[in-house]
């Protein structure tokens, strides 16, 4: 089956505008290639500043890339006329992080869900209402909810409405930008299950943007880990999380707290904070925080190289996967043991 969406060498700079100062480009995304097949779920993982949201907007054609191109069904988004691009939008929709600002506070939610249908004239006006009711039912709400305003709903319900609005145009691809991170813990699972269910039922391609590796694994087939706009590692989700090859993936994975004492990982505490995207380190962008850093890391940008079946990592070392970390410590065990000793004394 041909892929739905293909991105080749995608990059995006944001120019810091100035009258008297030399404009310094901020590289939000650099050289990202990926493809999404129909019905496939891909997770984009990274912390703030990793460029994952920018990448999502680039793939949707909401932002123009500075380099590279995005092909949807073989058509280059950059070469489409604005009107053709708008028509193509029907096939790719976005679900937002913040359920509060993603709905227009002054319009009834039914009208907002119906917008996509009206814009693309998908069904006759008389049938629009029935279509909106069907969409509301699809996300687990009642038809009567369509007559209400957004402020009458809880965060989880608003997120359902946002999903219904995105589904209204019958898209093939859904980009979900941190769709659960603003929700209460007990509601997050509801929305995740809804997305998984819709994906299976409608055969949606899903691009799931998140900072949470555990959530991504439960929902996605493949995962791509981003740091400072660059791809650090990509591959099958289960594989990447079981045996991460890149130091950053390992650190990120170890930072995710776990409820299960038997699954406590060695915590790798990364020193410092991510550098500014306006002034990235030379060579590997992660080297300033990497516990495994070598002198050679500063000289050249490490290419993505295959480390397994469909699994690639942008690290020049190949001993990360097996060897124990050099500076990592069993933080939890150490602290509790010391604490207990102190108490005993």
């Amino acid at each position: 089956m041909s892929p739905l969406l293909v991105a080749e060498g995608l990059g995006r700079d944001f120019a810091a505008r100035g009258w008297f100062t030399r404009p310094r480009p901020v590289r939000a995304v650099a050289d990202v290639s990926l493809s999404v097949a129909r019905g496939e779920a891909i997770g984009l993982v990274g912390e703030s500043g990793s460029g994952k949201s920018t990448l999502g907007r680039l793939l949707l054609g909401m932002l123009a890339p500075t380099s590279g191109r995005v092909l949807v069904d073989g058509q280059d988004l950059a070469r489409l006329l604005p009107s053709d691009l708008r028509r193509l939008r029907r096939r790719m929709q976005l679900v937002f992080q913040d359920p509060y600002s993603s709905l227009d506070p002054r319009r009834r939610v039914g009208a907002q869900i119906g917008d996509g249908i009206a814009i693309h004239r998908l069904v006759p006006a008389a049938e629009r209402e029935a279509r909106v009711a069907a969409l509301l039912a699809m996300v687990g709400l009642e038809a009567a909810h369509g007559a209400r305003y957004p402020h009458e709903f809880s965060g989880g319900q608003r997120q359902r409405i946002g999903i219904a609005r995105a589904l209204a145009t019958g898209p093939d691809l859904l980009v979900a930008d941190e769709p659960v991170s603003a929700l209460d813990v007990s509601v997050q699972a509801q929305v995740l299950r809804l997305l998984a269910d819709l994906r299976a039922r409608l055969g949606l391609g899903l691009l799931f943007i998140s900072h949470d590796l555990a959530v991504v694994r439960s929902l996605c087939d493949r995962v791509m880990v981003l740091y400072l706009g660059r791809v650090m590692e990509e591959g099958p989700a289960a594989e990447v999380l079981r045996a991460p090859h890149h130091p950053y993936t390992r650190a990120l994975l170890s930072a995710v707290p776990s409820l299960d004492p038997q699954h406590r990982r060695q915590r790798i505490l990364l020193a410092g904070e991510p550098p500014s995207p306006a002034d990235p380190p030379s060579g590997c962008v992660f080297r300033t925080r990497c516990p495994w850093v070598l002198p050679a890391c500063a000289t050249a940008v490490p290419p993505l190289r295959p480390v397994g079946d469909g699994h690639r990592s942008a690290c020049i070392r190949s001993d990360i996967g097996e060897a124990g970390p050099l500076v990592a410590q069993r933080l939890h065990d150490n602290t509790t043991r010391q604490h207990e000793q102190e108490r005993a004394e």
Binding site: A189, L192, D212, R217, A237, S258, H263
Partner: peptide, 18 residues
């Protein structure tokens, strides 16, 4: 149970709202 499982299974949802 509403946290994703270590085995990659989908988290279990709590129905309703606070």
């Amino acid at each position: 149970r509403s946290a994703p499982g270590e085995d990659g299974s989908l988290p279990e949802a709590i129905q309703g709202t606070v």
